[in-house]
């Protein structure tokens, strides 16, 4: 009964999504049978290293892929009940920038260098909300004030290169909000920024999320961002989900060997000065090859012979919140014994 209710309030429902990319030389499958959901007002962090497929998983269904790449998708991505994979380009354009806002890693690449900031943002409000030029300009001034740009009216007249990195990202955020989205997809929103600015942007996103009651999917490799703003975390490795659960569960008590190793690899201000750094051995697998068992097995301390043969299913963690799943039967067994 509870599950039914959850299903109904899910804003974004991704089920068995696989993405295959074909280029002239090879085919790779950066997303392999992934399912997750985002409820209204929830912040989901998708964590993974480069090549884990986290960006493509979010951008491909929205039709945002680099030129020259052919993609093939299966499964379903439902936004408010409507499948985005079967939606036409027109519908996608309407959703993208409107009900789903997107923040890019490099705010400069998302802005047109030769047009004034105010106009660029206003255009989005005009298109998606049907505002007049006057109304849109007023809305832009409000948005720029909302993201904490001092003196928004004169900022609207500026060009992107006249702003600092932090200011640009604020403009990028304002732009993603211009269509009054219900869901914000933020792709590495703080990676290009310094620590002090990064802290400001995380605060801002958290604050906006509360005030506008949006859902956010934040794609990141930085556990600092995850712990700072997410409710829920999905950990990805080699195109597959390895662990999914609430932020407190996953970060404080990681179960999957990959999540554990990754968390230990993050140096903290509490680690011993002069001590050896902890990392994971080896490197991620080649996604253009077929992976039979668990993709993490070659780097895993707990791997058994069977791990290399069968793909581990996502199983619920015993004695834990219902929403918590892990793709590692080996650790789950010992975990169950320990509890």
């Amino acid at each position: 009964m509870k599950d039914m209710h959850d299903m109904n309030t899910s804003l974004l429902e991704v089920a068995n999504l696989s993405v295959t990319l074909h280029t002239a030389k090879t085919s790779v499958q950066p997303v392999d049978n992934v399912s997750y959901s985002v409820k209204a007002g929830e912040v989901l962090a998708i964590v993974g290293e480069s090549g884990s497929g986290k960006t493509i998983m979010n951008m491909a269904p929205l039709g945002l892929l680099p030129a020259g790449v052919d993609s093939e998708m299966s499964g379903s991505v439902r936004f408010e009940g409507q499948d985005l994979l079967s939606a036409g380009n027109g519908k996608l354009r309407q959703v993208r920038g409107g009900e789903i806002g997107v923040i890019f890693q490099d705010p400069l690449s998302a802005l047109n260098p030769v047009r004034r900031i105010g106009r660029q943002i206003a255009e989005i409000s005009e298109r998606h909300l049907g505002l007049t030029t006057k109304q849109a300009e007023k809305k832009v001034a409000e948005l720029l004030a909302l993201v904490g740009l001092p003196d928004p009216l004169s900022r609207m007249q500026q060009f992107p290169h006249e702003l600092s990195g932090g200011m640009r990202q604020r403009v990028g955020i304002a732009m993603s909000l211009a269509g009054e989205p219900k869901l914000l997809i933020a792709d590495e929103p703080t990676t290009a920024l310094d620590v002090t600015v990064q802290a400001q942007i995380v605060e801002l996103l958290k604050d906006l999320q509360k005030r506008l009651r949006m859902a956010i999917v934040v794609i990141t490799h930085d556990f600092g961002v995850v712990s700072g703003m997410a409710n829920k975390v999905a950990v990805m490795y080699a195109g597959r989900l390895s662990e999914l659960g609430s932020v407190d569960d996953v970060l404080l008590d990681p179960v999957h060997p990959y999540t554990r190793g990754l968390l230990k690899s993050v140096p903290s201000l509490d680690s011993e000065i002069g001590s050896e750094f902890i990392g994971l051995p080896g490197h991620p697998p080649d996604l253009s090859r077929r992976i039979d068992g668990c993709p993490f097995a070659p780097r895993c301390f707990a791997a058994l012979e069977s791990c290399r043969e069968h793909r581990p299913p996502l199983l619920p963690v015993p004695h834990s919140a219902a929403a918590r799943v892990v793709a590692c039967p080996v650790v789950l067994n010992s975990h169950a014994e320990a509890v």
Binding site: A24, S27, A67, G68, V69, D70, E72, R289, R290
Partner: peptide
């Protein structure tokens, strides 16, 4: 890089399925 032609894309797809 250019988008693949229909023929090449079908070929790649077949190859991938086979692999």
């Amino acid at each position: 890089p250019r988008p693949l032609s229909k023929r090449k894309l079908a070929l790649r797809r077949q190859l991938f399925m086979k692999e």
